Simulated scan of single mutants.
Amino acid sequence: MFTSAPASICILRLSAIGDVCNTIASVQAIQKQWPETQITWITGKLEAQLLQAIDDIEVIVFDKKAGLDGYKSLWKQLNGREFDALLHMQYAIRASVATLGIKAKYKLGFSSDRSQDFQTLFTNVKVPSPKSLHVADGLMAFAHRIGVSQSELTWSLSYSDQDKAWAESKIQIDKPNLLLVPGASKAYKNWTAEGYVDVINHARDKGWNVILAGSPAKVEVDLTNDIQALLSEPCLNLVGESSIMQMLALIDKVDMVIAPDTGPAHMASAMKTPIIGLYAHHNPIRVGPYHYLMYAVSVYEEVIFAETGKTSQELSWRTRAKDEKAMNRITSDRVVTMFDQVVEDLYPQYQ
């Protein structure tokens, strides 16, 4: 689409933390090839905090909770501006409505096999889906469509010295540190307190320090309290105590992360911190931590086969398992075994 650097590009990816984190690789690929291109990123309030981790981006915050006023505010900020291209990287209808006030010669969106909520009606260039099922590769396809050369996905995220100091004050320097982010924003994605306790006890028996962290959402706080109540010795509990950037620094400083399908799992992958992701409702091949898919513990295939009689290859790309208790199929033994596998592969000194 562009044989030389475009003057300006607008990125539209409002949420969520994990998807915004995946999108960063695409944006940084554009920056690497065309450092002179001005990039404006429209995103949500919480997600804008994560974008502090990257350089040379103009961030415009869209407040989805403000209703029509949120759109008016966004369009007012963009009044009189026109971009060479809009990368409409979120197919939710609220994002598509936002494009009505964004002027751009080219408006790129997902092709019909990956779009929904009528996104194709709001774009004039359809981005071909890559062979890879992973969301991050689908987002990178936008960069390739406008002319960015093919390359491996890489992330370069940074944080302040203050965030570094905070994180370093929370870990133990004489032991390897395991960070558990036990809760996701949606309860059906969460594993059991009993399962986490088994993993914590195993890790401690192997000489690891264990830390709990997460957002202040009630579902995460409640699950964490259940875990703590079952332990003979509670873990350091940072759930609800960190900013996004402090969480990023903490993820960078620990030796391993265990989490369900939630934003910090993708942050760990971006920081090259080994992550064991726990999955039941979504295919980890599509939404798992990009660099550490080999360590995902997943019951997704067995759950959807039980529900549909079909494998994932026979179903739609985004098929979600409906069983609200599907995560209960993950056994403690499987997660403990995977923990030991990560240690054997990456930290033989801690065996």
Rank of each mutant, 00 (worst) to 15 (best):
H134D: 03
L86C: 02
M327G: 01
W34C: 08
S156Y: 13
D261F: 00
V342E: 05
A213I: 07
L223V: 09
H291R: 15
Y300L: 01
M256A: 08
S332R: 10
K103N: 13
S312N: 12
K175W: 07
S129K: 13
L179R: 03
V27K: 02
W191A: 02
T319I: 13
T224M: 08
M245E: 06
E241S: 13
Q90L: 12
L157E: 00
A280I: 01
D255A: 05
P274M: 11
C10A: 15
H291K: 14
I11F: 08
V299M: 01
S115A: 14
K72C: 09
I304S: 00
N22H: 14
I11Q: 01
A143W: 06
A66W: 04
A136N: 06
L153Q: 03
Y292N: 04
A167W: 04
T43G: 04
V181F: 09
Q38Y: 07
I17C: 03
K170A: 12
Y350V: 00
S269Y: 09
T337L: 14
G183K: 06
D63Y: 11
E344K: 15
G147P: 02
Q31K: 15
S132T: 11
P260K: 05
L108D: 05
Q172G: 09
R329N: 05
E302D: 15
M256T: 08
K76G: 01
S26R: 06
Q246I: 02
E36I: 14
W208D: 05
R320L: 12
P176W: 07
K72R: 15
K322Q: 14
K72Y: 10
T23N: 08
L68H: 11
E324S: 13
Q49N: 14
A48W: 11
M1P: 08
D226Q: 15
V335A: 03
L12R: 00
Y91K: 13
T37S: 08
N237T: 11
P6N: 03
K65M: 06
P35D: 00
I211N: 03
L179D: 05
G183F: 04
C10D: 02
I146V: 02
P128W: 04
E47C: 12
L178G: 05
E302H: 12
V297F: 05
V199M: 10
K32L: 11
V219L: 07
A321L: 05
A321S: 12
M247F: 05
Q38T: 09
Q313C: 10
P264N: 06
D137P: 08
V254W: 06
M140K: 07
H88F: 08
K72G: 01
D255K: 09
T123N: 12
D174N: 15
Y347K: 10
F83D: 01
R318M: 14
F83A: 04
H266L: 11
V343K: 08
E168F: 12
G214A: 00
D255Q: 12
S115F: 10
A136P: 07
M1G: 07
G80F: 08
I258K: 02
N22W: 03
V97A: 08
W208A: 00
P234S: 02
G147T: 07
L153H: 03
I275C: 15
A53S: 15
R13N: 01
W34D: 06
Q246V: 00
R329Y: 11
G18S: 05
L121R: 13
